[in-house]
Design a protein around this nucleic acid. Structure first.
Lengths: 231, 231
DNA sequence: CCGCCAGTTTGTTCGAGAGCAAAGTCGGAC
DNA sequence: GTCCGACTTTGCTCTCGAACAAACTGGCGG
């Protein structure tokens, strides 16, 4: 249990309607923990006994197939709730959460969920809104995966990451967390080879720049065209 | 607004904890409507102003890409809530719902949702449970789509339909709603040609039987093997 | 009873992208 | 500085399944 400044929470959607005293209460009940890059916060299929809020860092939500292939379902940015399976009456987490960088998260035991939704106005509403957005996003990814060619899927994946956590730099917009070719291929259901070729081609075309583990989109508009156009 | 027997509702998860009087109240507020096969209950992107309960029939939940390709996200069986976007604070429905056969559904205006969850114990819990199940199912489909070859995806899709709405017959287990090769290809992101070839091969192998618009799985176990094994 | 059409089957061609192989390079540990 | 391992690049081959084409079939409406 850590002593945390309530200003961390009071701007976030699920908490922004609450009073200082309520926020303090919530913090009192929370456990705060640091996760090193690469470590997992919880595993796929594990007992869903807590729910979480990411304060700092970035997470990947990952599913692994029996065959050992894995795919990245989505990324979590600071300020977002995650591991909210228990809010949906799930016994287990449907996917694992892995820290992409050193990260900091709060968590509460599941039994507090009903209390939170009952006691704090707007908490339930805002949380379910998050669920709705994720559901929509996953449906979108699914359609994309089912209908689009590899090139478009990769373009869409980059755009999604840029939109969710792009940082403006001199060169363009940089994805805020480290990401390998392998990671991108795990988001798009392709191979790191293909991703590497695509990024090389786009770099030559002046659309992206990339170094090890980092990608900057220099011409977002061109990427949008790639993700939409047919030929 | 139709006069409906409350016994229709009282066994369903969202309502099973309620008293007769409450169920009657809920029915009073509902609009009941019949939909012909092929018609849509609501369109993708439409204002999400009502939520629904399928009483009879089967629905496909469909997303369409800008390019005109469409994919079937999931099927809805009698007794399930659908179009519950509003419960997740969405302004619009993220996908369309189309009747696969002549169907009957109840619906209520969105403004009753908060009332229902507040007034009827277990309603919110059970509804969000449904959301959780769908989220899990879609994630599963997504991983499948991203990692598995066409043959396995089709096998999985058949198994999912059989599990959700299989009917025992002399020959095996029949999928309870009409389904074309095209439909199956829309669930698996392939073409009707490929699905046709697969079904033919499986029929020859004694695993399935199929006529126009109908599929019966005669050897479910063999299909499970196909959906799991590697070689 | 016939004709039509939606749905299905089957053949053939062809290209995207997976799989395999190998070499290059950057960054951190020591 | 130098070594090592994780990440990346690039070339080549080969297969799966999409795309195109065309014929067939069964059911429904007139």
């Amino acid at each position: 249990m850590a002593k945390l400044d309530e200003s961390l929470l009071c701007d976030l959607p699920p908490f922004c309607l609450l009073e200082r005293a309520q926020i303090r209460e919530i913090l009192e009940a929370a456990v705060s923990r640091r996760y090193e890059a690469g470590t997992s916060i919880f595993e796929e299929g594990a007992q869903a006994d807590r729910f979480f809020l990411l304060l700092d860092g970035y997470l990947r939500v990952v599913r692994t197939t029996p065959g050992g292939d894995q795919i990245i379902v989505l990324h979590i940015s600071p300020g977002q709730l995650f591991g909210i399976a228990p809010a949906l009456q799930r016994e287990t987490y449907p996917a694992a959460s892995v820290a992409a960088v050193e990260s900091l998260a709060l968590s509460w035991p599941v039994r507090l969920w009903p209390e939170f939704t009952a006691k704090y106005p707007g908490f339930a509403t805002e949380s379910y809104k998050t669920v709705g957005q994720r559901l929509g996003q996953i449906q979108e990814t699914l359609t994309e995966m089912a209908t689009q060619a590899v090139e478009k899927r990769v373009a869409c994946a980059l755009l999604r990451m840029v939109n969710q956590s792009g940082r403006k730099t001199e060169a363009g917009i940089e994805i805020a967390f480290p990401i390998t070719r392998q990671n991108i291929s795990d988001m798009t259901g392709t191979t790191l080879h293909t991703v590497s070729r695509l990024l090389s081609a786009w770099q030559k075309a002046g659309i992206v720049e990339s170094t090890r583990k980092h990608v900057t989109v220099t011409d977002p508009h061109a990427l949008v065209l790639l993700s939409e156009l047919d030929p």
